[in-house]
Simulated assay, not measured.
Amino acid sequence: MKNEKLRLETCLSPALYSKHAHDDNIVVVVDILRATSSICTALHNGVKRIIPVSTVEEARIKKEEGFIVASERDGYVLDFADFGNSPFNFTADKVCGKEIVYSTTNGTRCIHMASHSKAVVIGSFLNLTALANWLIKQDAPVLIFCASWKDRFSLEDTVFAGALAERLLQSGKFETICDAVTASLDLWSLAQIDLNAYIQKAAQKGRLAAKGLDDCIEFCHQPDFTEVIPLFSDGELIAVS
């Protein structure tokens, strides 16, 4: 008997998540600028674990409990936080061996939204190949979940979704009848010619530039900086391979 292929879908916004939610999914949460790029960088640089929380109130309580807190809203570091949401904050000298509480505008709430799933992992260009290879080895359907920006379509997240979908479909293990996957593949086909030039169009690039926070744009689109795969387990993100 011919083996059935695995389902591949992309969710372009948290506002659409309920339409894609299945308990048997492996969900790849994507927030390229900047949460998931920062998470991959932090674990690559030796963070012991990351505790993602959805709200400012939760982050504040964790700070009062003595945790190191990385937290922002709309790009601005919260007044009680130790640092914000740039991957450049998570250098080995600052974070190696540490436990960090993490809360951002878009990305961390998506992790909790998807926590009912078979597994939740973190995706970025920084771990693209390692992540694709790991997903291909798992025997489960995949949902690429774009964190977007305040429920609005995000160009950089969707371009990454196309890059990852291309790898998964080329493996022969997956199939799709999802228009969001098709659209992301088309965007990736345009963007990959010169990814850094293409991503200058992204609204989030402009938002970050207006606050002087766009120094990490090129880094966040660097493929295969790390082989770390952050997995959400028991309320925390840990590195698996």
Rank of each mutant, 00 (worst) to 15 (best):
K98L: 04
A202E: 04
E65T: 06
A140M: 07
I39S: 07
V28F: 02
L78M: 12
R73Q: 13
Y17N: 09
L126V: 03
S38Q: 10
V69P: 09
N196E: 09
K2P: 03
V29G: 01
T129G: 02
I111L: 06
N127V: 09
V95W: 01
E64N: 11
I144A: 03
D157I: 02
A15Q: 12
C40N: 13
S54I: 09
C178K: 04
A130Y: 06
V77C: 13
I39E: 08
P141E: 08
E236H: 11
I61E: 15
L155H: 01
V47F: 03
Q192A: 02
C178W: 01
A70G: 15
W134V: 02
V101S: 10
H112T: 13
T108R: 04
F174E: 01
E4A: 12
H44R: 12
G123Y: 00
F232W: 12
S154K: 00
A210Q: 12
I39G: 04
C146S: 15
N45T: 12
T176N: 06
P52W: 11
D31S: 04
S38K: 09
S13R: 05
P87H: 09
V69A: 14
A92I: 11
D93L: 03
S54R: 10
C110D: 08
P52T: 08
V95L: 03
Q192R: 11
R49H: 04
D151S: 10
E166W: 02
L231M: 11
Q200R: 07
A92H: 13
Y76T: 15
D194V: 01
E99H: 09
K98D: 14
S189N: 11
L155P: 01
G66L: 11
C146L: 05
